[in-house]
Design a protein around this nucleic acid. Structure first.
Length: 817
DNA sequence: TACTCCCGCCACCGC
DNA sequence: GCGGTGGCGGGAGTA
């Protein structure tokens, strides 16, 4: 009977051949073959049907496939298939029959998942019939139902489907994906996965992790000691399991495992996870005692299953990492980037106080109630600004059909921003940055082109630049923030990063494409070598980044905010440390500059409080390393080896971690060069101006005050242009206001990757002449993301050539198959 | 040989 | 008892 069953499940020859070709075409690298979201464009006559996508894919593959598909359709009836099979068996010899069977690859879970996904749209509308009957699917795809469960379980872990009843699922597509990923990231962080990964890596390096008894027990104990011995399925509100039968079932391991696997990517920097590490972590969590080889193998098997589905979803991609111990299979996250702790921005009072300072222990700060009010007030102001009639290009993506004149996707950008602002509770909670390498079906059929400037966008004027001064932090360090004028405009309306969230429901198709384009630059800078080199022309420069002109309604709101600010200003910033500042600014002002002004504090050696010194001391032994294997660790002492200019400018478009930036002011003072310095010197006016000119923030000839801090707020600009001066005052004020407001929103965001960019803009030692200093921030000899001039010292540490940008990078080689 | 992962047995669960 | 569900690991296919 087993044989009989087998023969039923075997695929007939004609389909086998077809699926082989489809396999070649459906490899993850072939992105245009992802689920088409606009079948109308390609097949205007055919309405969308559950199988149209698949049909299209197959038809697109080759004429041969088309004809095979036609034949296949003729015998799509299972009984016919069975008949054909018997017939085949009768007429072919054993060998021939074997050869006629689909190869193992053709039956892979990944391919099956592709076929499965091809049946449903990425973003289904509620009007469509989105039910999945497992029996039907299994039958139509000619597979055992068991395999469908594998797929569905993983999809369920991402809330792309949910179980309605026996044999019945609902298809949600990617509507919930961003929220799910955010939730998973949060849980991953809470479960200290980063630390676990690091621990495993450490043990691996020490050759302590093996499969013999004692060491494993020790390992298990250490896992047990962490706070998360048990983790259950992460659900989304409104997405709970509806069927009681499923709820009661405890073993949802594939689902849970899939979620955990995804979490590992989301908390890792870079987002590459080796199967081995993942398996060890997953084993460590639920089976503390017997970490035997078979358990390990089983976990690996399951991870392959999950990885195949995630690959089909184009969330991950298989790579190999080469380390000292050889080549290892691993997977790289290629899905949407999930910003950290986004949901904690929800402006609820409780959330604010609860989440603002997630640090445990000593560092628990509380927020003054007035600040909470302020947050709400500013939120309201923002909303008003966004919905004001003068807001730029107010377009309803779903209704306005007159926009065909200019790219609909571009037209939707302001709508996205508006949409997300209106969605208060989801304001940032669904903010997701799509990676440029993510599939872009809507744009796939068209040649890539530069992003056009929509009418509403205002090219940045190169007016004078005056810093916005942040009052002293609790540590006593003030900062001057220099923003590019374009950024200042942007700040008054919305941050570019705000527009990057996918629009749910109707207008997603266009958005997806534009989002990918818009953030191309950002993610390129972030360090994807491949993207940076493969698609240089697609990148937007800072200037090209869409900005929206500030409008009068914002000025109306200014007074109110200003009054609030003045009431709260003195106290507010005591609770903010440099890490928070840096993170906020790099997030919201990607090409601004945060300059610590150490000279403005008194009675303190290098301008830093004891707290900071303590923090710095503790950094001496801190290793900045990525959770994955082979990362070059960088200690604070190594940082000191870097030749630091008298003061440094931190380019904000590189991720800064609170801990890493905490060291920056110290390093930035000349006290490094002369440890006996009793006070840090002020950056001289000429140096400051040279620098600002050098980085393109001010035109040649324009001067900015040498010591802007002393001016405090509001700052009057240099009267270089009378027609601009009042604008400048307003602009500064707006920028300042928005900075303050951003500060109010942050405080919970300090969990980004540890990268310390250092730059010596004034005295380049190498005769390399960059086009602009801003570009130079990201230019390293081997490309934007390579480790510059690293040389090993006798003590095994690495040193960095002075004057070059240091971006910690994996030492391990990552090869993509 | 090591890596991948298909395949289907069989236990569990709710009805 | 039955059918749905899914954990699990043998072992075949592939690199």
């Amino acid at each position: 009977s087993i044989n009989e069953k087998k023969s039923i499940l075997k695929t007939p020859l004609k389909q086998a051949a077809a699926s082989h070709s489809v396999l070649t075409e459906l490899q993850p690298d072939c992105q245009p073959l992802a689920t088409p979201t606009k079948p109308k464009e390609s097949f205007p006559v055919d309405p969308w049907t559950p199988t149209s996508n698949l049909k299209m894919l197959i038809s697109a593959a080759s004429p041969e496939i088309r004809s095979r598909e036609q034949r296949r359709e003729l015998s799509n009836n299972p009984s016919e298939v069975l008949q054909a099979k018997h017939c085949l068996q009768e007429h072919l010899s054993g060998d021939e029959y074997e050869k006629s069977q689909p190869s193992r690859k053709e039956k892979s879970l990944g391919l099956l998942c592709h076929k499965f996904l091809a049946r449903y749209p990425d973003y289904p509308s509620t009007a469509e019939n989105n039910y999945i009957c497992l029996d039907e699917v299994a039958e139509e795809l000619n597979v055992e139902r068991r395999r469908i469960y594998d797929i569905v379980n993983v999809l369920e872990s991402l809330h792309m489907v949910s179980r309605l009843a026996k044999n019945r699922y609902a298809w949600h597509g990617r509507h919930n994906l961003s929220k799910t990923l955010q939730a998973l990231k949060k849980v991953g962080e809470e479960n200290k996965y980063t630390q676990q990964i690091q621990m495993i890596k450490k043990r691996e390096h020490e050759h302590e992790f093996d499969f013999d008894g004692e060491k494993n027990e020790e390992m298990a104990r250490s896992f047990g000691s962490s706070e998360h011995s048990e983790m259950s399925f992460v659900e989304l509100p409104g997405m709970e399991f509806r069927a009681a039968s499923v709820n009661s079932r405890k073993d949802k391991s594939l689902r849970v495992m899939s979620q955990k696997f995804v979490m590992l990517f989301l908390v890792s920097t870079p987002q590459i996870v080796s199967l081995e590490v993942a398996a060890k972590i997953l084993i460590g969590e639920d089976q503390l005692e017997d970490l035997d080889k078979s358990k390990f193998k089983t976990k690996i098997r399951r991870l392959y299953d999950i990885a195949n589905v995630l690959s089909s979803l184009e969330l991950i991609k298989k790579v190999h990492v080469t380390e000292e111990r050889g080549r290892k299979p691993a997977f790289k996250w290629t899905g949407p980037e999930v910003l950290p702790n986004i949901q904690e921005f929800t402006p609820s009072k409780e959330q604010c106080s609860k989440n603002l300072f997630p640090l445990k222990g000593k560092q628990n700060f509380t927020r003054h109630p007035s600040l909470i009010k302020l947050v709400k007030s500013i939120e309201n102001d923002r909303r008003k600004i966004q919905s004001a009639p003068t807001s730029p290009v107010k377009i309803s993506a779903s209704t306005d059909q007159n926009l065909s004149a200019f790219p609909s996707e571009m037209a939707q950008v302001p709508a996205i921003a508006k949409h997300q602002l209106e969605g208060q509770s989801n304001f940032i909670s669904s903010l997701v940055v799509l990676k440029p390498e993510a599939p872009c079906p809507a744009a796939g059929s068209q040649p890539q082109q530069a992003l056009p400037q929509p009418p509403a966008l205002c090219p940045p004027s190169h007016g004078s630049v005056s810093p916005v001064i942040l009052p002293q932090t609790h540590s006593g360090v003030s900062y001057a923030i220099y923003l590019h004028p374009s950024q200042a405009h942007t700040v008054t309306t919305y941050s570019p990063s705000f527009m990057l969230q996918p629009l749910p429901r109707a207008s997603v198709t266009g958005i997806k494409s534009i989002s990918a384009k818009v953030i191309n630059k950002i993610t390129t800078e972030e360090g994807d070598n491949q993207t940076a080199t493969d698609e240089p022309t697609k990148s937007l420069t800072t200037k090209e980044r869409p900005t929206i002109k500030s409008e009068t309604p914002s000025q109306r709101c200014l007074k109110r905010s200003q009054a609030l600010q003045e009431n709260n200003l003195p106290k507010r910033y005591r609770i903010w440390d440099k890490g928070v500042l840096s993170f906020l600014f790099q997030t919201f002002f990607p090409s601004g500059y945060l300059i610590p002004l150490a000279q403005c504090t008194h009675g303190n050696k290098a301008g830093f409080s004891d707290e900071e010194k303590a923090g710095i001391c503790s950094l001496q032994h801190t290793t900045y390393s990525s959770p994955i294997a082979g990362v070059i660790p960088m200690t604070a002492s190594e940082l000191k080896a870097v030749n630091i200019p008298a003061f440094h400018i931190t380019p904000l478009n590189i991720m800064l971690s609170p801990t890493s930036i905490a060291a920056a002011p110290v390093l930035s003072t000349s006290s490094l060069n002369s440890s006996n310095n009793s006070s840090a010197p002020n950056p001289s006016s000429s140096v400051l101006n040279f620098t600002l000119q050098h980085v393109g923030l001010i035109p040649a000839g324009v001067q900015v005050p040498a010591n802007p801090v002393l001016q405090h707020v509001p700052i009057s600009s240099q009267p270089e242009n009378s027609s601009h001066s009042s604008e400048n005052v307003n602009l500064q004020e707006k920028v300042r206001k928005n900075i303050l407001q951003l500060l109010d929103r942050g405080g919970l965001t300090g969990k980004c990757s540890a990268v310390i960019p250092l730059q010596q803009p004034c005295v380049p030692k190498e005769p390399q002449v960059p086009q602009t200093a801003t570009e130079n921030f990201f230019r390293t000899p081997g490309g934007p993301n390579t480790v510059p001039s690293l040389s090993a010292n006798s003590d095994g540490t690495n040193r960095i050539s002075p004057g070059t940008l240091y971006i910690p990078q994996r030492k391990l080689e990552v090869s993509e198959d």
